[in-house]
Simulated scan of single mutants.
Amino acid sequence: MTSAPHTFTDALSALESAVRDQDGERCDRAFPLVHQAFQEAGPDELRLGAPRLAALLEHVPPGPRAVTAVLVGACVERGADPVPCAPALFAAVREAFTAALEFTERWAATGGGELPDPGRDELDDRAVERAGFGPALGWWTLPQWGMAALALLGSKAVRRRIASDGGELRSLVERVQSAAGDAGEDFKSLVYALRVLDDEPLIVLHRATRTAYLMRMTGIGDNFQLHTLLAGALVGGLHVPGESPSAEAIAVCREKEGQILTTGTYNLGAPDGSWIWNEGTPSDIPVVDGTRLLVLDPPPYERSWPAGRYFPGMSGDLVLERVLGRDEAESWYARVADPKETT
């Protein structure tokens, strides 16, 4: 009888061997040992172990697969490189959300009713009978898959890799969120992370001064963060009048930890005059002639919020690339309507 492995590397090797041999009993013994050893693992062990764990995802039994994904994400949060882990992990994420979407469809086709809450309810025989084991397990493990995916999406390189699929994963997750109804609120953070734009050009029109700016945004999780960075760049940069957010508020919207109370400077508007809500994301800004176009109007009422990053592990930035000349600015103003009143 061999002794139990003591290090994360040893425990992982034992799990790989059990999975390779498709030995269920050894797998059952190896999984808790990997989790225990993870707590004491050093940086080098995590760096080398994370992609090995990710590579196991397609081979481990369905039950512990999502928990294994969470462990991959935990390795990344402790410093492991997310890029080598991303292909295998997001292939498994797609599989889980595809199964979950099938669960919602089968649930609706077998009588409907309120969907089980995967974060609180336990998987039961009734759900399996109505939808099948695979779809039910996909639905019940979504919180773990979302947690694992979010850990990797803090990386710009990973986001670029995911974006290369043309938005298919984002569309899939949004379909599950829509089908889930109230339960879909649990997937909001993952939806927002998949909507994050990187190196995205943005034309900003400041209507009161009839000026225009070409900016570029990266890693901005919501429009509260964007709003704060806009005011910092334009008011703080002395391009337009107003009160700039504090240096601390701008810093926490970039990389610094924490939140700082700030007051809104603008009303964010779309080219058709409708409002773009702070609660939304920069992806809500419409594209006009190939570039996102945002209009800044005076705020109809004072509004404050805790400035910071929607995703604390994701660095954000907004760069002013150039001030547009008068003729170029007017060509953009010709594309926008007057602001609409919104209750």
Rank of each mutant, 00 (worst) to 15 (best):
T7I: 14
F8P: 14
T9N: 14
L12K: 12
S13I: 15
L15A: 14
E16H: 14
A18F: 08
G24V: 11
D28K: 11
R29G: 10
V34G: 03
V34R: 05
Q36C: 00
Q36E: 05
F38E: 10
E40Y: 05
P43Q: 15
P43W: 14
D44A: 15
L46K: 13
L46C: 14
A50M: 13
P51Y: 13
R52V: 13
L57D: 00
V60R: 01
G63T: 00
T68R: 13
A69Q: 02
L71M: 13
D81Q: 10
P84G: 01
A86N: 05
P87Q: 08
V93M: 12
A96E: 12
A99H: 10
A99R: 11
A100L: 07
L101S: 00
E102Y: 03
R106Q: 14
A108S: 12
E114Q: 12
E114M: 10
L115G: 06
L115E: 06
P116Y: 09
P116W: 09
D117Y: 05
P118Q: 02
G119H: 04
R120Y: 13
E122R: 07
R126S: 10
R130Q: 14
G134Q: 14
A136H: 04
P143S: 06
Q144C: 01
W145R: 09
G146V: 08
G146C: 13
A148E: 07
A151T: 02
L153D: 10
G154S: 03
K156Y: 05
V158T: 04
G167M: 06
S171Q: 12
V173W: 10
V173A: 09
E174M: 08
E174K: 07
R175I: 05
S178T: 08
A179H: 02
A183I: 15
D186H: 15
F187M: 15
Y192H: 12
A193S: 11
V196W: 02
I203G: 06
L205C: 09
R207G: 06
A208N: 08
T211Q: 10
A212H: 05
Y213T: 11
M215N: 07
M215G: 08
R216P: 04
T218A: 08
N223C: 08
L226F: 07
L226C: 05
H227N: 10
A231M: 10
G232S: 08
A233Q: 10
H239Q: 14
V240W: 04
E243P: 00
E243G: 06
E243D: 09
S244G: 12
P245D: 00
S246Y: 09
S246V: 09
E248L: 09
E255A: 11
E255I: 01
K256H: 11
E257R: 06
G258I: 04
I260P: 00
I260V: 15
L261A: 04
T262K: 00
T263F: 04
Y266D: 12
N267W: 12
A270Y: 06
W275T: 15
W275R: 15
W277I: 07
N278F: 00
G280M: 00
T281Q: 01
P282I: 04
V288P: 04
D289R: 14
D289K: 13
T291C: 10
L296V: 07
L296A: 07
D297V: 01
P299F: 05
P300Y: 03
E302V: 10
R303C: 00
A307Y: 01
R309K: 04
P312S: 01
P312A: 01
P312K: 01
M314P: 02
S315F: 03
L318Q: 08
V319P: 05
E321T: 01
L324H: 03
L324T: 03
G325P: 02
G325V: 01
V336S: 03
K340F: 04
